[in-house]
Design a protein around this nucleic acid. Structure first.
Lengths: 347, 347
DNA sequence: TATATTAATACAAACGTTTGTATTGTTATT
DNA sequence: AATAACAATACAAACGTTTGTATTAATATA
């Protein structure tokens, strides 16, 4: 049985093989002009021959940089977050950075735990979307204070000093989407389906909805407003179905604070014998690509998820690379534009 | 302007503050009995006071372990992979491991690139689903040879010596799903919609489909078989729509090699005026949770994606923790069970 | 040919830990 | 009171790099 443990090659091995010093090997491989071209070549060849792979950990210990960005999202099974991660990855990769994704599972305990792991120096910076459980804000704040570059995207609670924020204008986006509905002759009432109001983005979308209704001289009917409490799609469906089935009368349209609420709403409505958009129109929020898979394509507020990731990464890396404590242009909030995409669930 | 750079506390700082040696501090914090309880307490308190956070990079350099598992998936925007990642994450987390996710973007170039980054020692092991472009197999093989624990899940091309594999029996799963359709009185012909046949899992599902038809004395009609070539959902829809619209005659059912093909198929069919399942029945593969969002719930081969991730992580960690070169029980292939979930797109 | 100059390389410290060995301090034994 | 035994702590090497400084070799200048 061949049990020889594959040995891992280091600079020292190359140095010994060539009877030169480790520093010469190191400098050769980084193409320093301090070593003669002939030697450099010899070293490169020997390195290839032995299959040398530099040890990133040792490099990191010296440079203080790991080449990794930490990302914390509330859940994996929401396409929006994955899309943002794609954007982060796309930008990061161009700058030779990797991403370490963690889910906080919508719990501040896990969030805190993840942050603590990242603080041990395995990432050069952090991009995070906060859960609605606010408690760990102090952790983030102290991380920012300690000088770790930090970008918060999507949901946030209160401002974190020293962090950068990338977001959309949830209030206005919702306001306009509801305006779009309210201006239709066929629409007299608009309902709302959203998530927990503890989450600030959901709350803002709700406020936008409310103010939009009021400014159109519509009345806000509490019975047409529903906020899901659970965090799992199957349960959410039942909550929504339950809510809708108890309605004696239906609004002409629903504005939903995410695409998945919208889809679940449509599903429940059709179960209840209502047609979309003929009987009831539905507008979602997010414009996620999976909604393309559906028969009836969803009218939705398009949120630039991928771009949001890219921008978050851009801000973060600019800080990481420049050094967090050099004076920067101090872009500490970036608001990306949204757009209502009209498809087949409105008419 | 307050420009004092936040200083990062290390063992030395605690040692100095307490006038003890660094090793005493280190041992105190790891609760070694070699240091007096009173001293340990003093050290712990000082560490808290100063806000000491251990440097994982330095630890890794010594231990040779980073506490990170690398994961390479072909694309982010396929729910199956995300679900597997969730499973990996779930298991890994319990063992104090993190995951570093990268996408190979279905390109062997990126795949290779990712592997090379991981080889620099930033991960303790690798879990990967291979793209259909085989080329980098040698890279993986040499990684395995070098002793890095390696698990391949889902798609693989040929066996990698020293790696472990977690998968399902794609052939049989497809075979049985098609049997289910073929046994219906209303079904005389079954079509197939799949992805690139270069990908071995798609190929196996196709073979299962084919053999299932033949064993039921159905004939295999080439005109009812379609394989998407593109890699983007929007394009895939057009491909499928195109294929279907050119059909003079339709089969009674379609077996699709993923859920998203099934959903796109349903969408295209309904655009063409066909009702599902009344006119044409559809079976998907994967049973992904987003299909729950749809009005008509998809009949699908349930693949234990989450579990697949968990198992992959379990195998990998057992090797990482035991040490890759100790004799292990040599579980090098794990085949997980699948199950046909009958819902509303068949009748 | 001796010396100044520069090119090429070697040495050694550093990054922040862990851990084996050496040293010091304390208590028990005689 | 001397010494053995052991507890408590300090010292130093190691992990695999990078990088500033010292040393040696090679060339140019006189």
């Amino acid at each position: 049985m061949n049990k020889e443990k594959p040995t891992i090659i280091k600079l020292e091995d190359i140095a010994k093989a060539l009877r030169v010093s480790i520093s010469t090997v190191s400098r050769s491989l980084s193409n320093s002009s301090r070593v003669k071209e002939a030697t450099r070549k010899k070293v490169r060849e020997k390195a290839d021959e032995l299959g040398y792979i530099p040890n990133q950990i040792a490099k990191s210990l010296i440079s203080g940089k790991t080449g990794v960005i930490g990302v914390i999202i509330p859940r994996y099974d929401e396409a929006f977050f994955i899309e943002v991660c794609r954007g982060i990855d796309h930008y990061a990769r161009k700058h030779n950075y990797r991403i370490l994704i963690s889910s906080s599972r919508n719990s501040s305990r896990f969030e805190k735990e993840n942050i603590m792991v990242f603080e041990k120096g395995i990432v050069d910076g952090l991009i995070i979307s906060l859960t609605h459980q606010t408690k760990s804000q102090t952790h983030l704040q102290s991380m920012a204070n300690r000088g770790t570059p930090l970008v918060v995207f999507d949901n946030m609670n209160e401002k974190i000093e020293g962090a950068m924020h990338v977001r959309i204008d949830d209030y206005s986006a919702a306001y306009e989407a509801v305006q779009f509905l309210a201006q239709k002759k066929s629409v007299q009432t608009v309902g709302f389906i959203g998530g927990t109001i503890l989450k600030s983005i959901f709350n803002k979308r709700y406020e936008g909805y409310k103010d939009s209704l009021l400014s159109s001289d519509f009345s806000l009917k509490e019975e047409f407003v529903f906020n899901c409490k659970s965090m799992h799609q199957v349960h959410e469906y039942h909550e929504i179905y339950n809510f809708l089935s108890k309605l004696n009368q239906f609004p002409n349209a629903f504005f939903c604070s995410t695409d998945s609420y919208a889809l679940l709403c449509i599903k429940a409505l059709s179960k209840l014998g209502k047609r979309v958009p003929e009987d009831i129109q539905v507008v979602g929020f997010g414009n996620l690509h999976y909604s393309r898979l559906f028969n009836t394509e969803l009218t939705s507020v398009s949120q630039p998820s991928f771009k949001m990731g890219e921008k978050a990464a851009e801000l973060l890396l600019s800080k990481i690379i420049k050094g967090a404590y050099l004076p920067s242009e101090k872009i500490d909030e970036l608001i990306l534009p949204t757009k209502l995409i009209i498809r087949n669930t409105t008419c």
